[in-house]
């Protein structure tokens, strides 16, 4: 593991992206301190204004400060992205470990279930789940999380298959370690790497899915700002106030950029074939 740390620190991209992501998280945590205004406060006399000293990035159709909404939006978008992926990771790992380790009919059953979920058009499934559960941040997270479970199940299962017959697992089995012990203490640590890569990619996917749900009117509930929600709201005012759509798009791009490059960097580090590039 220490070699991983060394390689990680030697990789400029990885370090840069980590710092960027840390900054984003910090922005989200410190939103109340950083934001110049309450993100839901409507300044009636300042609707759809451009940049000014008081409103650095301008205001939206209600006269709300766009900068403050983007800062608070970091909270919502990151929470949605991270929690949705967490839901997928937890269930995906569990199913993947079980399917990969036990094989046979259990594997068959789980993977067929995953095929069912996978063959379902993603956005329609998310939409149907949100419609069934009702709106709200938690339900949105659950819907996006459920939709992504199959990808993680496949990733973990693949990794488990490649290591379950290795010597150290065999020996653990030989000394009579319990199955959960083998699964979580011997096998799981070895699937974290592909999980990490997959997760960093899935976060951007989750943030985008939330924006698509917002476009269909079922994302995060107003007036809470999510970047996706801001973009889909701003679409109607693209010509009148382009700033309303440009700034949240930039915020989203930077975040997704950081996540993806981080994922790539980690993959490069873990995969010796990529080293030295």
């Amino acid at each position: 593991m220490s070699t991983f740390r060394k390689r990680f620190l030697a990789n400029k991209t990885a370090v840069f992206c980590s710092i960027l992501l840390a900054l984003l998280c910090l922005t989200a945590v410190l939103a109340p301190v950083l934001a110049p205004h309450d993100p839901t406060q409507m300044f009636q006399d300042h609707r759809m204004e451009g940049s000014s000293g008081e409103f650095l990035l301008g205001t939206d159709q209600f006269g709300r400060d766009i900068l403050s909404r983007i800062i608070y939006g970091a909270r919502v978008s990151l929470v949605v992205g991270l929690s949705a992926v967490l839901v997928s990771v937890v269930f995906g790992t569990l199913f993947g470990l079980i399917a990969g380790y036990f094989g046979r009919w259990i594997d068959g059953f789980i993977m067929r279930c995953m095929d069912v979920l996978f063959a379902f058009p993603e956005i329609l499934l998310a939409l149907a789940i949100v419609a069934a559960l009702g709106p709200g941040t938690f339900n949105t997270i659950m819907a996006i999380g459920i939709v992504n479970i199959p990808i993680f199940t496949r990733t973990v299962r693949g990794a488990v298959l490649s290591i379950k017959n290795l010597e150290y697992v065999e020996s653990a089995r030989a000394i009579g370690a319990s199955t959960p012990r083998i699964l979580f203490q011997e096998i799981f640590p070895n699937v974290t790497a592909p999980l990490l890569v997959q997760s960093s990619l899935a976060i951007s996917g989750a943030i985008l899915t939330e924006s698509a749900l917002s476009f269909l009117g079922l994302g995060i509930q107003p007036p809470d700002p999510s970047w996706g929600g801001m973009i889909s709201e701003a679409r109607r005012y693209m010509e009148l106030a382009p700033g309303m759509i440009i700034w949240p798009c930039i915020a989203m791009t930077v975040t997704i950029l950081a996540c993806n490059m981080f994922g790539d960097a980690v993959r490069d580090i873990l995969d010796p074939r990529h080293r030295g590039k």
């Binding site: 409507m42 949100v130 419609a131 009702g134 509930q221 107003p222």
Partner: peptide, 28 residues
Amino acid sequence: MVETAQVIQQQLKAIGINAKINQLEWGN
């Protein structure tokens, strides 16, 4: 309707009523 709800939510806040907005799909 969504915009009206948001304006009302702000106005009710001024008298201490905290309203959460539920934006529902049409069938719901």
